[in-house]
């Protein structure tokens, strides 16, 4: 994969796992999430941070995750842990580092500087370790655009963290998500303006399947790339909801094919089934094909 392909890869489902629980991290890839979030932060007790790093290091080095992306969530920059977290993630060859409680572009630059130092120390490929930022406060959300453009070579995107965000907004979870609307929308606008990906928060009530599905449907409607998840059981629902319909796939395929034929002939604007199509439609159509392939719904040759 090129760096651009790595930055833009499909990330519908990002499954959180405590890095210190061996039973979880050794075979989590069998649930086929797009990415695994190996957590050194909240899922690990304060006095077990060191233990989590050792087990993370060996898991990264020895477990074959079969192409599932391995993201390490490091502790916040206000803790004594994040520098060692970066060292172990880079030394282990993690694909990406998720920055907790990111509030400013400077936070991103600080982390990136330490990643560069670690890549040099451990002789890793310079630039290999990607980053994403979790926005957990109103300040983080308001600075989302600056955060998104702080390091274009490494920045995958931003995720909102509902628990802390709702608390600082003096509210709590409500079905329908009105309390999160401003945060989600602001972050989405910033991410799209910067051309990076955007991920929604976890849904914590595992018994409320309908509530979860409704939230995922809303995520899709709002334009999110994917969602952070806390249980393997949530993966299938996200993939199902994010999968394009048969009609969407057929239409996308036609658009891409006709566009390729026409652009070879030097024609930029044309119509497909009575709709005007130009180059602006192509990324969307290609994205539908990519999603369809990932969902096992498209076996064509595009």
């Amino acid at each position: 994969m090129t760096q651009i392909q790595r930055l833009k890869r499909l990330r519908r489902s990002m499954l959180f796992l405590s890095a210190q629980r061996p039973a979880l991290i050794k075979d989590a890839y069998i649930f086929k999430p797009d990415s695994l979030l190996l957590d050194l932060e909240d899922a690990v007790a304060e006095n077990q941070k060191d233990a989590a790093r050792f087990s993370l290091y060996h898991a990264l080095k020895t477990v074959d995750y079969r192409g599932v992306e391995r993201v390490v969530r490091i502790n916040g920059l206000d803790t004594p842990h994040w520098q060692e977290d970066i060292r172990v993630a880079v030394a282990g060859g993690a694909d990406m580092i998720r920055i907790s409680k990111c509030e400013t572009a400077d936070d991103v630059r600080t982390v990136v500087r330490h990643i560069e130092m670690a890549e040099e120390e451990f002789k890793s490929e310079p630039g290999y370790t990607l980053v994403m930022a979790a926005l957990e406060s109103p300040l983080g959300v308001l600075n989302a655009y600056e955060i998104c453009i702080a390091c274009p070579e490494r920045m995958v995107g931003v995720a909102i963290s509902g628990g802390d965000f709702r608390k600082s907004m003096q509210t709590k979870y409500y079905p329908g998500g009105l309390e999160m609307l401003g945060g989600r929308a602001t972050m989405l606008l910033a991410a799209r303006a910067a051309g990076v990906q955007c991920f929604d928060t976890v849904f914590t009530n595992l018994d409320d399947i309908e509530g979860f599905r409704a939230e995922v449907e809303q995520n899709k409607q709002m334009g999110f790339d994917g969602k952070s998840l806390i249980s393997p059981r949530q993966i299938a629902i996200v993939h199902e909801v994010f999968a394009p319909t048969e009609k969407e796939i057929a239409e996308a395929e036609k658009i891409v094919r006709v566009w390729r034929e026409n652009s070879a002939k030097g024609i930029g604007v044309f119509s497909v089934d009575g709709k005007m199509i130009d180059i602006a439609f192509i990324p969307g159509a290609e994205r539908v094909i990519m999603m369809a392939k990932a969902s096992g719904l498209y076996k064509g040759d595009l």
Binding site: P22, A51, S55, H58, V63, E84, R87
Partner: peptide
């Protein structure tokens, strides 16, 4: 698993030596 056992032994040893940062990842570990 072997890799888990190794992680636990290393963690116990570094704790017993009072070391809690700048671990030799990829070296002695």
């Amino acid at each position: 698993l072997d890799c888990t056992l190794r992680a636990r032994v290393e963690c116990a040893v570094f704790r017993a030596c009072g070391v809690d940062k700048d671990y030799p990842w990829g070296g002695a570990i």
